[in-house]
Design a protein around this nucleic acid. Structure first.
Lengths: 327, 327
DNA sequence: GACATATTGGCAAACGTTTGCCAAACTGAT
DNA sequence: ATCAGTTTGGCAAACGTTTGCCAATATGTC
C-alpha cells in the first residue's frame, strides 16, 4: 500500500502540473481539454490517488470533521442520536468526532476549543449545558445545531420535539383515563426540554380542572436520571398521597421510579401507571410496563445533517420539531 | 475571538523567528536563552496561541486523531466502551473519531480508508469483522487495538476478558446450584468472544458429567442480539425438554429470551434461571431477574489507551485480559 | 495576414507546522 | 589578539492542497 500518493504523483504520471490535477479532482472539468482530463483520470485510477483531507483542511481552513458534543453517551437515547448522526454525516462525506462531556461545563469548553483548533466544519450539541465557551461559540456564528436541549445561551438552530405538547399529551392521557392523583418526576436542574415537558403537563392538568397543589411533584439531584428517579420514587411513594399515574420526563427516570415501586411491592402499572418521554426501543424488551412518548431518535441524524447543510449554505434554519408517537 | 493566531503571530510579538517559537512550544527549552523563552511564553499567553493540529499533522504525517471503529453503537456495552475510551484518549491528549459500521464489512473498509487518509494515530476496533481492509491494516503494522473480538485476520493486540473462563464459570454455577437441564443461546455467526464463551461453557459441563446432547443449544441469525434471543427463546421453550438454566452470551440475548419467557408465562428465575455475559449496569435497574458475568467495560478505555501508547512507543502488547465479576 | 478572444495549463504563493543546517555572537583558554 | 567551542536563533524547505494570475496556444473575425 503506497500511501504516499499525492497530487504530485498523479501529475508526474499524467505529465501535467499539480494545479491541473487539483482542478480536475475538484470537478473543474472545463479548465482542461477532454484529452487531458482523461489522462489525469487514468493516472488517478492507476496510482489509487485519494485527496489528503489534512492538506485540504490546512489550505481551505476547514476540515471534513464535524464535532458532536454530547452530554452523556451512556444514555441510550444519546447513543442512538450519535449513531444516526454518524451515519448521516458519513453519507454526506463528513467525519464525526465524538466528545462526551459528562455534563460538565469545563469539559464542554475544553472540547469546544479543541474542536475549533481542529477546524471542524460544524458542531452538533446534544444536551448542551451553559458555559463561557458556548456563549463564545454562539456569538461567533459558527455552524452549530442544538439537539434535545435548546441553546442555553441565546437562540440557535434546534432539533427536537415539541416538549410542551408532549407533556400536555400525557396529561390528557391521564385525565381521559380517569386518573385522579397524577404526579411528575423530573431533574432539579432541568434543561429546556425537561422544563417544557413539565410545564406542558402541569398547564394541561390545570386546564382540565386540577388545582395546583393536587399535582404531586418530585425532583432529584445529580446527573444520573436513574438515581433521580429512584430517589424521587422514595418520596412519591412514601408520602401520604399515593399517585395513581406518574409522568417521568425520561425513560431512565422511569426505570428508577419503577425500581423503587418494585422494592415497595407496588404493581406497575396496576397500582400506578408510569409514562415516560423518550420511548427508546429497548423499552419493549425490558420495560413492557412502561408507556412512552416515543421520540424518533433514529431520524435525528438525518435532520441534524440537513440542518447543518442549510447553515453551510448560509440559509436560515430555526428549529425542526419532529413528530412523536404515543405508543 | 481572533482565531488567526499562529506561530507567526507569536513570533512577531516576541520579536523572534517562527522556528524559535516552534521549538519552545515543543519544549526544546535549551535552544533559547531563558530571556527569550520568557518573552516567547509571555507572547503566547498574550495572544492566546494554541498550536494548530492540522498544520502539525500535515508536517509530521500524523494527526492527534484516533479512530474508534465500532460494530454497533446502539449496544450499551459498546456505548460504554466508546465513552470510556473517549475519556481516556482526551486525558492523553488525543481526539476520538467514532465510526459505526453496523457490522457491515464494506462500511468497515470504507472507514478504514477514510481514517488512513485522516492520518489517524491509531485504530481501536471494537467487535471488528473480517474484511479486506482489515487484513491490509493488520499487514501494514499500523497501531491497532482489538476489543471484545480478536483480530479476525491474524493476531493483534487485544483487550477483553477470558471468555472461555467466563463460560466455564457459568457452567460451574449451574452445576453447583444443582441444575439438571442447562442451555446456551448464542448468535449463529459468532465472534471469537461468543465462540469462546460457548465452548468454555460446554467443555466445563462435559467435565462435570453432562453428555454432549444433554445440553440444549440454540442459536439465532441476524445482527440484533435482542431478536436472536427472542427467536431462540421460542425454540428453547417450545421443545420437549425445558431447560432450567440458560446461559445467554450477551445481555441483549438475555433480554430477548426473557421476553419470550414472559410471553409464555414462565417465571424467571423461578422456572428457569437466566445468566448473561456482559452485566451492564442497566441490568440492576431493568433486569433484576438477570444474573451476569459483569465485564468492566468502564475501564476498557484506560486499558485500550495504555495499549495504544505501548504500540506507539514500539513496545510489545499482546493481550490484556481484564478481570470480571460474577454478580 | 493581423488582430482580438477563447481555451488550456503552469507558476508560485499560501495555509501552520517542523527541522536540518548555517551564521552570528558569545565564552573561555592560550 | 587569536582561535576553538558553545550557545542562540534564523533561513528555508517540506508536508498536500487550492487558486489568482499570467503565458502560451488555438480559434475565430475582418
Amino acid at each position: 500500500m503506497p500511501e504516499d500518493v499525492s497530487l504530485a504523483t498523479v501529475a508526474a504520471r499524467a505529465g501535467v502540473s499539480v494545479s491541473t490535477v487539483s482542478r480536475i479532482v475538484n470537478g473543474e472539468m472545463r479548465r482542461a481539454s477532454p484529452a487531458t482530463v482523461a489522462r489525469v483520470l487514468d493516472a488517478i485510477e492507476a496510482v489509487g490517488y485519494r485527496p489528503n483531507p489534512v492538506g485540504r483542511a490546512l489550505k481551505s481552513g476547514q476540515s471534513q470533521l464535524v464535532a458532536m458534543i454530547a452530554a452523556n453517551l451512556d444514555n441510550p437515547a444519546m447513543a442512538t442520536i450519535a449513531s444516526s448522526t454518524e451515519a448521516a454525516l458519513r453519507e454526506a462525506g463528513y467525519v464525526m468526532v465524538l466528545c462526551d462531556t459528562h455534563d460538565r461545563p469545563e469539559l464542554q469548553d475544553e472540547y469546544l476549543h479543541a474542536m475549533r483548533a481542529q477546524m471542524v466544519r460544524g458542531y452538533v450539541l446534544v444536551a448542551a449545558v451553559a458555559s463561557p465557551g458556548l456563549s463564545e461559540l454562539s456569538a461567533s456564528g459558527a455552524p452549530a445545531v442544538f439537539v434535545t436541549r435548546r441553546n442555553p445561551s441565546g437562540r440557535g438552530p434546534f432539533v427536537g420535539i415539541d416538549d410542551r405538547a408532549a407533556g400536555a399529551a400525557v396529561a390528557d392521557y391521564f385525565a381521559d383515563l380517569g386518573r385522579r392523583a397524577p404526579a411528575v418526576v423530573f431533574p432539579r436542574l432541568g434543561s429546556s426540554a425537561s422544563r417544557d415537558r413539565v410545564s406542558g403537563f402541569l398547564a394541561r392538568l390545570r386546564q382540565r380542572g386540577w388545582s395546583e397543589d393536587a399535582i404531586i411533584r418530585a425532583d432529584g439531584d445529580g446527573r444520573s436520571h436513574l438515581q433521580i428517579g429512584y430517589d424521587a420514587g422514595a418520596r412519591v411513594f412514601g408520602g401520604r398521597d399515593m399517585p395513581d399515574a406518574i409522568l417521568c420526563v425520561s425513560d431512565q427516570i422511569a426505570y428508577g421510579v419503577n425500581r423503587r415501586a418494585r422494592e415497595r411491592g407496588l404493581k406497575i402499572p396496576g397500582d400506578c401507571e408510569l409514562v415516560s418521554i423518550d420511548g427508546t426501543p429497548l423499552n419493549q424488551w425490558v420495560a413492557p410496563w412502561l408507556k412512552s412518548i416515543e421520540i424518533p431518535y433514529a431520524v435525528y441524524g438525518a435532520e441534524i445533517v440537513a440542518g447543518l447543510q442549510l447553515l453551510w449554505r448560509g440559509e436560515a434554519f430555526g428549529e425542526r420539531l419532529l413528530p412523536y408517537r404515543f405508543g
